[in-house]
Simulated scan of single mutants.
Amino acid sequence: MLGWDRVSQLIEEKVQAVTDPVRDDEVAGQAATGLLRRPAIARTVMRDDSTRMAVHQAQFDNSEEGSDRDSVNDHERGH
């Protein structure tokens, strides 16, 4: 039977094996999107406070960018 330290080490090795190949942000984003579509993974990920805050900040930033784009488009159309 494996001790907790060894189990933790094995998990960390698996995480490293998955994250090393996806250093490119576009690839990492697509991989994360696919994983987060799995309800059990999304629930687990959102339990982590720093991850949840990062996701909420990204939502806010995206909505601000959308508002900024809308304002620019309205200005360019003369509204």
Rank of each mutant, 00 (worst) to 15 (best):
D61R: 13
M53R: 06
A54E: 00
D24R: 04
V45L: 06
S63L: 15
H56L: 09
K14G: 11
V22M: 09
E76I: 12
A42Y: 03
H79P: 01
V18F: 15
M1Y: 09
W4M: 13
R43E: 01
N73C: 04
R43F: 00
Q59M: 14
T44P: 00
A40L: 13
E65C: 10
S50Y: 02
Q57C: 06
H56K: 07
Q30K: 14
S63M: 15
E13L: 15
E64F: 15
I41D: 02
F60E: 01
D61T: 11
M46V: 00
Q16M: 14
D61G: 05
T33L: 12
A17N: 04
P39R: 11
G3S: 10
V15M: 11
V7I: 15
P21E: 03
G34K: 05
E64A: 15
P21M: 06
K14F: 14
Q57K: 12
G66E: 04
T44Q: 10
Q30P: 05
L35N: 03
D48R: 01
G66S: 09
M53V: 02
S8E: 08
L2A: 11
G34A: 07
V72A: 08
V7Y: 13
L36G: 06
M46S: 06
R23D: 04
D20P: 02
L36E: 02
D68S: 10
T44R: 12
D61C: 08
P21K: 06
D48V: 01
H56W: 00
S8R: 13
R23L: 12
A42D: 01
S8Y: 08
D5Y: 08
S63N: 15
R77P: 05
Q30V: 07
Q9D: 09
G29Y: 04
D24A: 05
Q9N: 09
V27E: 06
H79L: 14
A40M: 10
I11G: 03
R6L: 15
W4L: 14
T51K: 03
D5I: 12
Q30G: 14
D68F: 09
S67W: 10
R77T: 08
R6I: 15
G66Y: 04
D68N: 11
D25L: 15
R69I: 11
E64H: 14
A42N: 03
R69A: 12
N62S: 15
P39F: 13
E64R: 15
V22Q: 01
L10I: 07
G34F: 05
D25I: 14
A32F: 13
D20G: 04
L2Q: 09
E76F: 10
E76G: 01
M46F: 04
V27G: 03
Q59C: 13
V7E: 06
N73M: 10
S8G: 05
V55L: 05
R52H: 07
H56C: 02
H75W: 14
E26G: 07
Q9Y: 11
P39K: 10
A17R: 07
F60H: 05
M46D: 00
G29E: 01
F60C: 02
S63Q: 15
P39V: 04
Q9H: 11
G34W: 04
